[in-house]
Structures are given as structure tokens and as C-alpha cells.
């Protein structure tokens, strides 16, 4: 189980590197969306490993609301960049 966790963290590093390197703002947004869903799944995974209901609830809420929030952010950024 620990090995799976480490592989998940390494997978998390790829979009972080990509978000740092790429100059286009949409590539960055893609990386952020990927990271947010990955962290939520990681929280769920760890909560199930520890058999902890509280953290699992937090993970599910973050999964739902985080995605909705990034949709909002994408709309706002689109407004900003198209006006330029």
C-alpha cells in the first residue's frame, strides 16, 4: 500500500512540473485541474487506509467543490484573456 501511495505522489509531481514550465495559461489550468482531482483522490485513499470517516468526508467535499470552483475560475480567466 505504501508503494502505491508513493507512485501516486510521483504522478502528482508531473502536472506540478508541467504547470511550472509551461507558459500558456490554459496548459497551467489543465495541470491545476489534474492536480486538484488527484489530491482529492489521494485524500480519499489515505482516509480509507486509516479508516477515518472525517477525512473521507473532507475528501469528497473537496472533490466536488474544487472541480466546481475551477470551472468558475476558467470562465473568469477566459473573460480576462479574450479582452486583451
Amino acid at each position: 500500500m505504501n508503494i502505491i501511495l508513493v507512485i501516486m505522489i510521483l504522478t502528482l509531481l508531473i502536472p506540478i512540473y508541467q504547470g511550472w514550465k509551461d507558459e500558456d495559461i490554459w496548459q497551467k489550468m489543465l495541470a491545476v485541474a489534474s492536480i486538484s482531482s488527484k489530491t482529492a483522490i489521494l485524500i480519499l485513499f489515505i482516509s480509507v487506509l486509516r479508516d477515518d470517516w472525517m477525512i473521507a468526508i473532507v475528501g469528497v467535499i473537496i472533490l466536488t467543490v474544487g472541480n466546481a470552483g475551477f470551472m468558475l475560475l476558467a470562465q473568469v480567466i477566459k473573460r480576462v484573456t479574450t479582452e486583451n
Partner: peptide, 10 residues
Amino acid sequence: PFHALVIRGI
């Protein structure tokens, strides 16, 4: 500043 805000999401 916009890129910084996106990284703030990460």
C-alpha cells in the same frame, strides 16, 4: 500575476 494565481491553485 495570472500565472501566479493559477500556481496558487496548485
